[in-house]
Design a protein around this nucleic acid. Structure first.
Lengths: 191, 191
DNA sequence: CGCGACGTTGATTTGCCTCAACGATTGTGG
DNA sequence: CCACAATCGTTGAGGCAAATCAACGTCGCG
């Protein structure tokens, strides 16, 4: 149980068998079918989610009424609405599974308790967040320096195989252009 | 000395006078003139920088040879190249002061030592990074959902006053368009 | 089988870029 | 302290990349 998470934590900090069990009693496990919602705009976000297997996406509804994918998360990444997590404010984002997905749920208040019992986890999350932040900055950089087509080519070479796991309209949205345009890019150079 | 930083830390975690002095002996202070470089592509990034007063920007040189501003940081924010900080890899980014700026420098290796002496700082940085990450995600969202002109209007209403502190060409670059276009936006609706 | 979701393709439009020339402002050295 | 250069901002003409809109093909699923 939770083995993938333990392994991930051990990449960053030591974790004893005893600590594993403290952690285990504060976690829960959840299985999501494809396209199932984990969080919907208007709700309060209570937990941090670790992906064991599968893929989540975070999206918002734009004023013009279409879904704008803001983030993807795959195996060994955490996802949540960090803007409101730990507060009682409602979220404006939606989190949904892209494919059948298995996650570990760490409730925000339990997380605080776990930190008191396993102080090294504070370090683990600091390191995880530093990586995530660095990745977000890199993404901002790519959005700024590359044109649409270049972004697609860069993304597909950086994450080969991932392309086949997600519908094209979600990828187009994430990369900041239209599905029609993505279709035209592929028609051009896939040959 | 370092009072602004102590105050900022105390927004998140307790900090005793004794811990202040442990911290102090591992920090240094630096004053930068406008446009001075703190980090240049090709160097190794050794430290994390806390802004006491002033403004830094992080930028890269694009293939076409122009400066692409990726981030700004102002009072009470930390800035560094988190992609390489703590490693011996060279950086590809530049960090430069926008105006006369005063910073606190926390060396990466000393930071590790300080964490062993003041474990609560691990928590402080976790919380700071969580906020920074949340802000970076919000920014990605704005880049995706808004058109160029809307981004400018949103930015200038979200950070009134900041506009006057930075040259327009840096702001245009940060927002993802050309200085000429920014000039045209302003001409349109400032009247 | 038929419907809805997804992807493709083409015609047209448009928002923003590029390029170029011209002001305004700053700062620096004689 | 002025002159000049360099930097920064403005304005306009023209071009192009990507959006929009619309129609059609295809696949999976109830």
């Amino acid at each position: 149980m939770y083995q993938e998470l333990y392994d991930h934590i051990r990449r960053y900090v030591p974790l004893s068998a005893e600590e594993e069990s403290v952690l285990a009693s504060n976690l829960s496990h959840r299985v999501l079918k494809k396209k199932e919602h984990l969080l919907t705009a208007g709700q309060v976000c209570h937990a941090n989610y670790f992906i064991v297997k599968g893929c989540l996406r975070l999206y918002i509804m734009t004023e013009s009424g279409h879904e704008q994918t803001v983030q993807f998360a795959i195996e060994n990444w955490w996802m949540s609405d960090y803007n409101t997590l730990g507060t009682s404010r409602i979220t404006h984002v939606n989190i949904q599974s892209v494919e059948n997905t298995e996650i570990v749920v760490l409730d925000a208040t339990l997380q605080e308790y776990v930190f008191t019992r396993i102080p090294q986890l504070e370090r683990y999350f600091r390191l995880v967040l530093q990586r995530a932040y660095a990745a977000a900055i890199m993404r901002a950089q790519y959005m700024l320096e590359m044109r649409e087509e270049e972004r697609y080519r860069h993304f597909s070479s950086a994450f080969p195989g991932f392309i086949q796991r997600i519908p094209q309209y979600m990828l187009a949205s994430y990369l900041g252009f239209t599905p029609e345009f993505l279709s035209k890019i592929r028609a051009k150079k896939d040959a």
